[in-house]
Design a protein around this nucleic acid. Structure first.
Lengths: 108, 108
DNA sequence: CCTACATAATACCTTTTGGTATTATGTTTA
DNA sequence: TAAACATAATACCAAAAGGTATTATGTAGG
């Protein structure tokens, strides 16, 4: 459990990797496509993608000679839960969400 | 904004530091008291506390010759918000929380 | 005031991280 | 099948991180 948490936290702890996740949020991308979004070499991007994959934050599908990188947002859940285990914070959030949910109900 | 996110993520990215936060969740502690919970030197603990302080995740109050370390759970909010910005995940969480809130309502 | 003790500061070492460069491998496609 | 192209693998470098050891400093209390 702690081990899982750690690989995920490690994956998220670098600004470049978080930026990659944001890009993948728009849709799946090959290594080359990801590289085009940044000013660093493909090999460096590849290293980041490997760490993201180890953290289960992305999944990779090999298609022909390409590797398609796909965001796995559910992997963020353990991190979110860890954060929410600090109850003071949790209570505060809960009341904020109450408002959000009520607003959603009205729009139905 | 990214800068703030980064210092917080950095603070959380180490297992020892997360364990320190869990201990501080029980109550404020001096450096010595925190050290007693671990098997590493006081100097190493102090370095971790400095990084936690830079991430605004704890605050420090100097009292006489002691430094009282205090948890600041609200600092986790930007990280939580970043995670929730991945909407697939968010939608899933929202419905879970709906359940939690409804249960709370019944207990009032 | 002076001694004991908690924290601070500094120097130093090892490992990890982020990156580049280069070479190899495998897959299309003309 | 050969050439072009995308990814993989390896070696290497510099900087940062995590840690210990040691010395300095400041504060409480007898």
């Amino acid at each position: 459990m702690e081990a899982e948490l750690q690989v995920t936290f490690r994956a998220l702890s670098d600004p470049t990797r978080r930026a990659i996740l944001m890009h993948l949020h728009q849709g799946d991308m090959t290594i080359g496509e990801v590289t085009d979004k940044f000013d660093i070499t493909r090999a460096a991007i590849k290293k980041h993608l490997t760490i993201l994959e180890q953290g289960n934050v992305i999944s990779v599908q090999v298609r022909g000679r390409e590797r398609i990188n796909h965001l796995e947002p559910m992997a963020l859940q353990p991190v979110s839960q860890w954060i929410n285990s600090f109850s003071t914070f949790w209570d505060e959030r809960l009341s904020n969400l109450q408002t959000v949910i009520e607003r959603n109900e009205k729009n139905k």
